[in-house]
Amino acid sequence: MVIIVFFALAVICTGAVLGMIFSRNQATSALLLVLAFAALGGLFGLLGAPFLAVVQVIIYAGAIMVLFIFVIMMINMGQGIAPEKKKGIIVLACAMAIVLLIELVFAGRGSLPGAGVTGPGVTPTDLGRLLFTTYAYPFELTSVLILAALVGAIALVKKREP
């Protein structure tokens, strides 16, 4: 059963990423990326990391992608990359792909220091308990940070009172 779900999610994820790369419309690309993130969230859930799964969906698929889509719609870049730049980008992409491949090989063999070490499973309950006991102070400070960001953004763009 699990293996079926895994392959379904993996196919959706890879397919969505491929579609994102080959799509000509940026908005479509962004939406396909949302799909890929959601499938990735499912994969995390399968690996026994429910909190990571939820965060992946809420933060990446929710918040960050909405920001992407806003930017795409506001800036509306007409044409893609200039053809003379394309060559360099392809070379760079190949180099990055090779680096990633090497990393994956190393990770697969478990020869990276610290790789393969797994701690006890962390449930959302544990995290919540930590946030409200040991880390209560930083947690509350985050709210001050968000308040400062909100006020700052509004102060910079709000309409002037006549």
């Binding site: 400070l141 400062a148 910079l156």
Partner: peptide, 17 residues
Amino acid sequence: IVVLLGLEILSVSSYAL
């Protein structure tokens, strides 16, 4: 971590100021 949060509160307010 707390130092970092303090720094961010300071920075974010400073950008707007």
